[in-house]
Each structure stands twice: as structure tokens, then as C-alpha cells.
């Protein structure tokens, strides 16, 4: 851990330069430049179809970009499968639809990757899994299957599953959009705690309350471009571009 924190201060966690991506003829990401320092918390918002999910999915190569470069934790992204897997070891991801493995128990969901990817002994991996399940306050459900849990519980398990790999950065892809309203808070609470512990985070979310309390920077995207980028206080109180103003009035004006 000390070696990681030693290099932590100089290299940025994520660097994107001139990133472009097309789905067929559709230009989904346009000239994206973004640098994320270690320990930074960033919230990305924007209308649907603006490319915000695609952007963070490029960071762990769930989507492939066609132009530009991405450097994650000092490792430049290439087509090489080993390189991609190496990057993924440092990057945790939480999905909108949780994507827990339904055929495995909660405990197995969390201990699977430490056992098979990091080659940890089963006992050690399970102890680690229990430790993180306790942190997201769901340890008592460890032996249930995902299908027996509520949406909020499943999403907390998904966060614990990611944390078990000791990621240096966490990507959240609309983590509360598929949840019933009364379950959103339990997931956001866990995310706030994670932010307070210093985790580097990129969150695609429409939870503006979360953005105000936690984010160091808020990024507004529209039509594949980063339109506006600012600290939350000025972002919400004094938006500069017309599109940002319109978007904020649409999501906050009811």
C-alpha cells in the first residue's frame, strides 16, 4: 500500500486526451479531455444519450474508443488483453442494474474475483468479503442469493463486491436509477462514506443532492461533449452555458 500511496501524489488517476468514439456513424464521444486526480470525486450529469455512461465505460474498456488516449493509474490503455485486465484490477465498477451473479450467494459474489483473479486463499477472500459486507451493512445476508434481496441491498452488495478487489478508483454508472425511491438513500449513504474515506470516484448520476455534498467537480455533458465543468457550488448556483441552465431547470424545477 505504501508504494501505491507514494506514487499516488504525482500521477493522475485517470487521463483522457482527445477521446473520440462512434457507434457506427453516430459520434457518441467528441474530443473528450479529462484528468482525474487521485482522491477526486467527480459527478457526471447530462441528458440521456449524452454519452456519460459510454465515457466511464471507456475507462475500464467495456467500450472501445477509436481515437485519443486513456491512461489509468499510469498504465496507458491498449488493445492488449493482458493490459486491459491489469487496468481493470485497479478500477471498480457499479452498474445501474447491479449485475450481481444470480447463481452465487452474496458471499460468493464478493469472494469470487479475489479467489480467481487475485489468487487469494478462499478463507482469506471470504474474511475480506465479510469485512466489506459489514461496511455496507449487509453482512447478515451473506448466505442469501441476490434474487432474495431488495434492489437497495443488491446495489450495496455490488459496491462491496467491487471494493473486495481493492480498486484505486470506483466508477458508478447511474447506481440509483433502477431503485425504488425509498432505497436510494441507503445506497447514497454508502457512497458518501466511501467518498469521505478518500476513494477516487466518478459517478454518473442525477442525484444532485449527492453531487452538492460530495463532488469536488461536476461535469455536464451533452451530445458527446463536456459542456461545463465546475465546483458544485458555482455549477448549481451560477451555470454558465445555456444548455446547462436548461438541464438544471428541467431536473430541479419540479
Amino acid at each position: 500500500m505504501t508504494s501505491q500511496t507514494a506514487k499516488a501524489d504525482d500521477t493522475p488517476m485517470i487521463e483522457m486526451r482527445g477521446l473520440n468514439k462512434w457507434y457506427g456513424d453516430f459520434h457518441v464521444l467528441r474530443d473528450i479531455d479529462l484528468t482525474v486526480q487521485r482522491g477526486e470525486r467527480i459527478v457526471i450529469c447530462g441528458p440521456s444519450g449524452s454519452g456519460k455512461s459510454t465515457l466511464i465505460r471507456c475507462i475500464n474498456h467495456l467500450e472501445e474508443h477509436q481515437q485519443g488516449e486513456i491512461v489509468v493509474g499510469g498504465i496507458p490503455m491498449t488493445q492488449d488483453v493482458k493490459r486491459i485486465e491489469q487496468i481493470r484490477h485497479h478500477v471498480g465498477m457499479v452498474f445501474q442494474h447491479f449485475n450481481l451473479f444470480p447463481h452465487l450467494s452474496v458471499l460468493e459474489n464478493c469472494s469470487l474475483a479475489p479467489i480467481w483473479v487475485q489468487k487469494k486463499p478462499r478463507r482469506e477472500a471470504e474474511a475480506l468479503a465479510m469485512q466489506y459486507l459489514e461496511r455496507v451493512r449487509i453482512a447478515e445476508q451473506a448466505h442469501k442469493f441476490p434474487g432474495q434481496l431488495s434492489g437497495g441491498q443488491q446495489q450495496r452488495v455490488a459496491i462491496a463486491r467491487s471494493l473486495c478487489m481493492h480498486p484505486e478508483v470506483m466508477l458508478f454508472d447511474e447506481p440509483t436509477s433502477a431503485l425504488d425511491p425509498e432505497m436510494i438513500k441507503e445506497v447514497l449513504d454508502v457512497m458518501v462514506e466511501l467518498a469521505e474515506e478518500g476513494m477516487t470516484m466518478l459517478c454518473v448520476t442525477h442525484e444532485m443532492g449527492f453531487a452538492k455534498t460530495v463532488a469536488d467537480r461536476v461535469i455536464f455533458m451533452d451530445q458527446g461533449q463536456i459542456i461545463e465543468e465546475n465546483a458544485p457550488e458555482p455549477f448549481f448556483n451560477d451555470p454558465q452555458s445555456e444548455r446547462t441552465k436548461l438541464f438544471l431547470s428541467q431536473i430541479l424545477g419540479h
Binding site: N60, E85, M93, F95, N99, F101, A113
Partner: peptide, 23 residues
């Protein structure tokens, strides 16, 4: 099998054979 299953496994750093064999 929903695509998200393989994506979640990939995001955890699993290679092709582990994604297939375990998930």
C-alpha cells in the same frame, strides 16, 4: 444471459475463460 453479467465479470478483471466458466 444478460450482457451485464459478462460486463460485471470483466470489470472485476476476469479473463475470457473465467467469465465463461464461472459466470
Amino acid at each position: 444471459i444478460p450482457k451485464g453479467q459478462e460486463e460485471a465479470a470483466a470489470a472485476l478483471g476476469m479473463g475470457y475463460w473465467k467469465r465463461m466458466g464461472l459466470i
